[in-house]
Design a protein around this nucleic acid. Structure first.
Length: 395
RNA sequence: GGGCAGAUGGCGGAGUGGUCAAUCGCAUCGCGCUGUAGACGCGACGGCUUUAUGCCUACGGGGGUUCGAAUCCCUCUCUGCCCA
């Protein structure tokens, strides 16, 4: 495989969406040398889905691959169980083997949406970490002191706040570093929150008489509401989200984040992004952004459809093309029960509240009587709020 | 091993014997407005019903005191800090 040393591409790799490079000169020289590099990236499958925040670094990995370098993707199936303390200001729970297995199911497929797996190494770190003997682990532990560990910001904060830190959490960076040794990485990528783990890899490689890897960290992407992107916050855009959801979530993005999303999540050139943000109001910028991102993961056709759907429902107040159908056998039903049956409310109290607050419509007609009965006709549309629909089908 | 502090709703965090289904903030949901599911404003936000000064469940688990406990006592579990 021919290695590209195109200066502009290298420059782009080292700058766009990049937070920090250690050591920049070294990495630049390596890239320009024309030698094939071993570029490592690892994800712990702590959840079943990869979101577009994590995709940033995957896309960066892809950029290395496009230059002809060897890409090594590591699934942290073992480390996921240990729990990476990096991004948490609280203790990270350990996952069970079963949970991890469940999460891994579609991982390869998701990663394959971004990098070319045929040319990549795809590895599981349980393969070597599981076999690690206690004596070996101790040797590994010898490479770090408690002081060094506590220098890390989130450990320090937790320590000072009097929150717990288990020594198990100290082992995490050691294992990640050991991965680097095992795959003999020249470069490791990661989100900026991974900085400590990544540089730990350098220390550990040297401990094992390898040359320390260079480290490239990418910028972190906030979730749609401006807070850290996190599944538990519900502000996450997953790369497997269906086109309509993905489009809609991007439209709900905080205005201040538009340009950042363009830079980190799309392939548009820097200049083009500047033009878009100069010439359009935030809504239209977001329409474009949403289109670009959906296109990356679902293709142009789907992106076009999602755009239309969005305009139809939200700009036009229409209904979606596909509405979930609910089968009903009664001729007449209490409105509350109908909402429950259609999963448009999770309890009777909630259903009642929705009705009283004027959020419920049947065939576009507002219903405000919580005790009211509804004549069931096949094909009738029950709507809650602006965007939740169900189609009733008699059987 | 000893001492001290703590465990409250999805999260943070008030509340120290009745007026507590529990102030407030975040998140969520509805309505209005609009540039959209953005921003802003208003409202709701445990469940159930006979919608009521109604019933049930809930303030880490169990037991007790009391007419009455998230609040007091005992005990268990978990966590933090300090001493050894």
């Amino acid at each position: 495989m021919q290695i590209s040393t195109d200066k502009r591409k290298i420059d782009q790799i080292l700058s766009r969406g990049v937070e920090d490079v250690i050591e920049k000169e070294s990495l630049k020289a390596k890239l320009e040398s024309g030698k094939q590099l071993r570029v490592k990236l690892g994800f712990d499958p702590t959840g079943p889905n990869i979101h577009i925040g994590r995709a940033i670094v995957l896309r960066k990995l892809r950029a290395f691959q496009d230059l002809g370098h060897k890409v090594i993707f590591i699934v942290g199936d073992f480390t996921a169980q240990i729990g990476d303390p990096s991004d948490k200001l609280e203790k990270r729970p350990m996952l069970t083997a079963k949970q991890v297995k469940e999460n891994i199911k579609t991982y390869k497929e998701q990663v394959g949406k971004i990098i070319d797996l045929r040319k990549a190494e795809f590895r599981f770190n349980s393969k070597w970490l599981k076999k690690l003997k206690l004596a070996e682990l101790m040797q590994l532990q010898e490479s770090f002191t408690v002081g060094q560990m506590l220098a890390r910001r989130n450990f320090k904060e937790r320590f000072e706040k009097g929150q717990e830190i288990s020594t198990r959490e100290f082992s995490y960076p050691l294992m990640q570093g050991y991965d680097s040794v095992k795959v003999a990485a020249d470069v490791e990528l990661g989100g900026f929150d991974q900085l400590f783990n990544l540089t730990a890899g350098r220390t550990i490689q040297q401990h094992y008489k390898q040359k320390p890897q260079d480290v490239l960290t990418t910028q972190m992407l906030e979730g749609t509401d401006g807070r850290k992107m996190s599944t538990s916050w519900g502000n996450v855009i997953n790369i497997v989200d269906n086109p309509n959801d993905m489009f809609g979530k991007i439209m709900s993005l905080k205005d201040e984040l538009i340009e950042k999303y363009f830079l980190l999540c799309t392939n548009l050139r820097d200049g083009e992004i500047k033009e878009i943000s100069r010439d359009n109001n935030p809504k239209d910028q977001k329409m474009r952004l949403a289109f670009e991102i959906v296109e990356i993961y679902h293709g142009k056709d789907e992106a076009g459809k999602a755009k239309k759907e969005f305009e139809n429902i939200f700009s036009g107040g229409g209904k979606p093309e596909e509405i979930q159908e609910v089968k009903v056998s009664e001729e007449k039903m209490n409105l509350i029960d109908l909402l429950l049956m259609a999963s448009l409310a999770s309890s009777k109290s909630e259903a009642r509240r929705l009705i009283e607050q004027g959020g419920v419509r049947i065939n576009d007609e507002k219903r405000t009587d919580p005790k009211g009965n509804v004549e069931i006709t096949s094909g009738m549309i029950v709507q809650v709020g602006p965007r939740r629909f169900a189609k009733i089908v008699r059987n």
